[in-house]
Design a protein around this nucleic acid. Structure first.
Lengths: 111, 111
DNA sequence: CATTAGTACAACCATACGGTTGTAGGAGTG
DNA sequence: CACTCCTACAACCGTATGGTTGTACTAATG
């Protein structure tokens, strides 16, 4: 079960356009850090830091292939976030249901 | 359609435990800012700032009721984030499908 | 084995963020 | 009207974040 800090890191990591783009590109899992860096108007080191943030959040993994380290997005990380949002929406639906139930009760036992 | 900055704000807003808790409590939409603040070990102003962050992200709205401003979570905001994660997972599935297809093609047209 | 490609990491800087206190405005209540 | 409750916002402070450059390690290549 992910801790609150895990959730913090996941959402924090997703709160940056460059990092979201890296997640997208890394779905096809072919590029190393340097290749990823070529896509962005920043230094290699900056990109490397973004990858590190994603890695700490569990959203990507790195695999050594030759002299490169290929970045691969980890769906399970994404699912942790999605499940939480699903849960929020469930609770929301529950609220609607409770309100409906309340109206029904009122109708069935009118004052 | 939400801009990249909108997405930034939404995920950023969700990257804090206090704010996520406010979103949860505000689903039942009954508490004003001061009442919310009572739940957390911080000043009223700090809580008020958190609510402001959520409001800017479109995750909650405030409605004046008497002298209070009742905070209510906005599901649509949550859905923006959820849809994005759904999309990422779809792309992931797409990758799997393409890999499977590749294998199938190889089997059907062997060298 | 010297060189080059790719990666990692430390040090540094400006700005953003999460907290504080203090002050001021808007809406009920005596 | 005076007062109190709730909210809003500015100013401030320490720390985290996103960027930079520079140095060092690892692995393929001549």
């Amino acid at each position: 079960m992910p801790t609150a800090l895990d959730i913090d890191r996941i959402f924090r990591a997703l709160a940056d356009g460059t990092r979201r783009d890296i997640v997208l590109r890394a779905i096809d899992a072919g590029e190393g850090v340097a290749e990823l860096a070529d896509h962005y108007p920043m230094s290699f080191a900056a990109t490397q830091k973004h990858v590190a943030v994603l890695e700490r959040a569990g959203l990507v993994t790195k695999e050594r292939i030759g002299r490169r380290k290929v970045v691969r997005t980890n769906v399970e990380g994404l699912r942790v976030a999605r499940r939480l949002l699903d849960h929020y929406e469930e609770l929301w639906r529950g609220r609607i249901d409770r309100m409906t139930e309340l109206v029904t009760d009122t109708k069935e036992t009118p004052a």
